[in-house]
Design a protein around this nucleic acid. Structure first.
Length: 415
RNA sequence: GGGGGAAUGUCCCGAGUGGCAAAGGGGGCGGACUGUAAAUCCGCUGCUUUCAGCUUCGUAGGUUCGAGUCCUACUUCCCCCA
């Protein structure tokens, strides 16, 4: 068996070096394939939310690396599979989403890929397809006869994601049971349509990927491949991008580029090098230099990480602007105009302003924030929950700054 | 189809004897210390017009001065038997 360090193809060598690699179904053969030809590979994204989040960024970066190496990435929107719902490693069944919701989500998610990948008709241009295209049309009995007969219940029951359900006496419906079959079928269909030989994904999808590979061998007599990436957690063990105010969305409507930049700026020390390799395109030499910085100097590396990662997701100009807004806000204490801003009627109570700007979710919460000395108006702590804010709080530019804690700042302009 | 069990603070787990805004965690939010880091410590964590009021314990009724706690029906899920 080829060791990871023996990879010859530029793509896999880079993939390993940058920390994307977790496992592969046939290292030697896949390496050879990458050396021999332009490989078409896909990753599927289900439409369970109106945006992808940072947790998906690893997968999108995988497609980006493929494209950079001259291969052809396929983005598969799971318009079909989302109707079934992936049960893997979840304690509860996903709520069944309506078709309208799935379609809305899909339309919103599509946009996220524009900056990460180049789409088009060229040989290594990315392709986007929706698996509803073929899954929706399947007929039950023909499908069972052609595809279903290749699936062994006995073996599916031994798959880790399924076994966990059985062992823990968790509910597991027939619908959910079929998700794996749908995904396996996708792989084969993508091979038929685009000559797609490789499926990549997070390590939790291993079982589903392997199912697709088996199916490919049986119905098309072709060797397909699987390549997985590690589940990314922060050094202190938290899942990537699961801050509790919500996921770190990639869609700018749901999380502003400035906040996205801030997310990366707040990376833990121990993660800086790892994240630079995975989430930016910086060359290894540069990253090696940055991650060696000590103590407070590491903050410079975090700023670069933030700007580079934001640039890939939202564009360079937007990223630079977010960096500048952050610099002025945190390093100069100025009222940078790039902060999230709100137009509100002005004489108003401080509680209303805190709620209207999203700094607090209710008046009670705003009161508590004040009681804890956490709410500040123009950098001065607010002590009176009954305080009225009027035009006198505005600076010469006609703006005032409201902050919750040391990191969350918003601007208010009179409406 | 028959029998048994479970649903708790709208993030999760989870105590709860008829007097409960409801123990304890986790998570989150603020504060202190720092480097917009981690770790640690402290406070907060249902809503409101906040020295008080209002609404919460799967749903709908009922018993009671008073129900998360008792009764009835229903819903969903789990287990055992078929």
């Amino acid at each position: 068996m080829t060791a990871v360090s023996d990879f010859k193809s530029p793509f896999l060598r880079d993939f390993v070096a940058r920390g994307h690699y977790y496992d592969c179904t046939d290292r030697e053969a896949l390496d050879a394939l990458f050396l021999k030809e332009r490989v078409t590979a896909y990753i599927g994204f289900d439409c369970t939310a109106p945006s992808l989040h940072v947790g998906h960024a690893m997968q999108i970066m995988t497609l980006r690396r493929l494209q950079q190496a001259g291969h052809r990435p396929i983005v598969v929107m799971g318009g079909g599979t989302t109707k079934v719902g992936d049960p893997s490693f979840r304690n509860e069944a996903r709520p069944l989403l309506s078709e309208e919701t799935i379609e809305t989500n899909k339309q919103a998610i599509l946009k996220s890929f524009r900056n990460f990948l180049t789409f088009g008709d060229g040989p290594s241009d990315a392709i986007m397809v929706d698996n509803a295209q073929w899954l929706d049309k399947l007929e039950y009995v023909p499908f069972l006869r052609e595809i279903g007969r290749h699936f062994s219940i006995n073996r599916m029951l031994t798959m880790e994601s399924v076994k966990a359900k059985i062992d823990n006496d968790l509910p597991f419906s027939f619908l959910e049971f079929n998700y794996s079959i749908m995904q396996a079928y996708d792989f084969v269909e993508l091979y038929r349509r685009y000559g797609c030989r490789l499926q990549s994904s997070g390590s939790d999808q291993w079982g589903n990927i392997v199912s697709g590979i088996d199916l490919g061998r049986r119905v098309e007599n072709i060797q397909l491949f699987g390549l997985t990436t590690p589940l990314i957690t922060t050094s202190s063990g938290a899942k990537m991008g699961k801050t509790a105010q919500g996921a770190v969305w990639l869609n700018p409507d749901m999380r502003s580029p400035y906040d996205y930049w801030q997310f990366w700026r707040n990376t833990e020390d121990a993660d800086v090098g790892r994240f630079l390799r995975i989430f930016t395109d910086l060359p290894e030499g540069e990253i090696a230099r940055l991650e060696k910085l000590k103590g407070a100097e590491l903050n410079d590396a975090k700023k670069i990480l933030a700007t580079e990662a934001t640039a890939i997701c939202h564009g360079r100009a937007v990223a630079d602007e977010a960096a500048e807004t952050s610099r002025r806000t945190f390093e100069e204490g100025a009222m940078a105009t790039g902060l999230p801003s709100f137009s509100l009627k002005l004489p108003d109570g401080i509680l209303n302003l805190a709620v209207a700007t999203g700094l607090a979710s209710s008046n009670s919460e705003a009161r508590k924030l004040i009681a804890n000395n956490g709410l500040r108006l123009n950098d001065v702590a607010v002590s009176d929950p009954k305080m009225q804010v009027d035009a006198s709080a505005l600076n010469p530019d006609g703006v005032l700054k409201l902050s919750s804690g040391k990191k969350k700042h918003v601007l208010v302009r009179p409406a």
